[in-house]
C-alpha cells in the first residue's frame, strides 16, 4: 500500500499558503491605508518640502561655484519669466476689459479671498496628472474648488481635502472631461484629458480651428484652459480631431491659486 497521497496533494498546490498571505496583506492594506490616508500624506509632506528646499539649495551652491552655470541659471530664470509673461498675455482675452466692466455692473467682482498655495509635488513624481498643495480644510479649501495659475490659466479642481493638504486633479488627467469654449467661434467643446498636460477634442469638420487658437473655461470669468496644438482631419471623416495643450508647464509648478 502506498502512503504518499498527502505528499502529492501538497505538491499540487505548493503556493497556496503564500497566495493566501498575499491576499491577506492586500485586504489588510486596503483597509488600513483607506483609514489612515490623511496621516500618511501628512507624514510624507515634510519630506517633499525638504526635498524642494534641498534641491533649490543645491542649485544655488552650484550656481555660486561656477559663474558660467550662474549665467545658465539666469538664462533659465529669464526664460521662465518670459514663458510666464507669455501665458499671462495669452490669457488676456481681447474682450477682457469689457468682461471686467460687465462683471462690475453685475456685481460679480473677482473674489479677494483667493488663496495661494505651494505645490508640494507634481508630475512626473505623481503618476497621474495630480498635484498636491499645502492648503487644506483648515485654510477653507473645499472639494471641487477651482485651482489656477497666478498668471491666470485654469489648471484643475480640488479632488480631495486633508487638514493641511489637498489633492488637485488637473483637467489634463487621463479620462477627465471638461466643458470649455473655443474662443475663435465661441463654440462649446468638451476637452478630454490625455495626461502630461494634453487634451483632445472633436469638432465638426466645418468648424474653423487653427493651431494657436485659445480654449477658454465656460464661466463668466473665463480663463485660458488650453491652446490648440494640432488639427488632424481625414478626408473621409465628418469630424476633425484637435490636440491641445495646457498653457502651463505642469512639470515645474510652484505656486497656485485656489478659489475660496
Amino acid at each position: 500500500m502506498k502512503g504518499n497521497f498527502l505528499q502529492k496533494n501538497r505538491l499540487r498546490q505548493p503556493h497556496t499558503r503564500r497566495i493566501l498571505i498575499l491576499l491577506g496583506i492586500f485586504l489588510a492594506g486596503s483597509i488600513l491605508f483607506n483609514i489612515f490616508d490623511s496621516i500618511v500624506v501628512s507624514v510624507v509632506s515634510p519630506i517633499w518640502r525638504a526635498e524642494n528646499s534641498v534641491s533649490r539649495s543645491l542649485r544655488n551652491i552650484a550656481d555660486f561655484i561656477g559663474s558660467q552655470e550662474k549665467l545658465i541659471k539666469e538664462n533659465a530664470d529669464l526664460r521662465e519669466k518670459v514663458s510666464s509673461l507669455e501665458i499671462e498675455v495669452m490669457s488676456l482675452s481681447r474682450e477682457q476689459a469689457l468682461e471686467d466692466t460687465l462683471r462690475e455692473l453685475a456685481g460679480r467682482k473677482p473674489d479677494p479671498e483667493t488663496k495661494i498655495a505651494t505645490v508640494l509635488t507634481h508630475p512626473p513624481q505623481t503618476p497621474y496628472d495630480i498635484i498636491i498643495i499645502d492648503a487644506g480644510s483648515s485654510d477653507g479649501v473645499l472639494v471641487g474648488k477651482e485651482v489656477y495659475l497666478p498668471e491666470g490659466p485654469s489648471l484643475g479642481a480640488i479632488s480631495e481635502v486633508f487638514s493641511n493638504r489637498s489633492r488637485v486633479k488637473l483637467f489634463t488627467s487621463s479620462g477627465e472631461e471638461t466643458n470649455a469654449v473655443l474662443e475663435r467661434n465661441n463654440v462649446p467643446v468638451v476637452l478630454h484629458g490625455l495626461g502630461a498636460g494634453n487634451f483632445r477634442l472633436t469638432l465638426p469638420r466645418d468648424t474653423a480651428v487653427e493651431p494657436g487658437d485659445k480654449i477658454l473655461s465656460p464661466e463668466l470669468s473665463s480663463r485660458l484652459m488650453a491652446v490648440v496644438g494640432e488639427v488632424i482631419i481625414q478626408p473621409t471623416d465628418s469630424f476633425k480631431e484637435v490636440l491641445a495643450k495646457s498653457p502651463a508647464n505642469i512639470f515645474i509648478l510652484r505656486y497656485v491659486f485656489v478659489t475660496p
Binding site: I25, G29, S30, F33, D37, V40, V41, V44, T121, Q125, T126, P127, Y128, D129, I130, I132, S159, E160, R167, K169, S173, S174, G175
Partner: peptide, 13 residues
C-alpha cells in the same frame, strides 16, 4: 504595501 503607499500619497487616476 508600496503600491498602497503610491496610491495613497499621489492619488489614483
Amino acid at each position: 504595501l508600496f503600491g498602497f503607499l503610491i496610491d495613497v500619497i499621489y492619488g489614483s487616476g
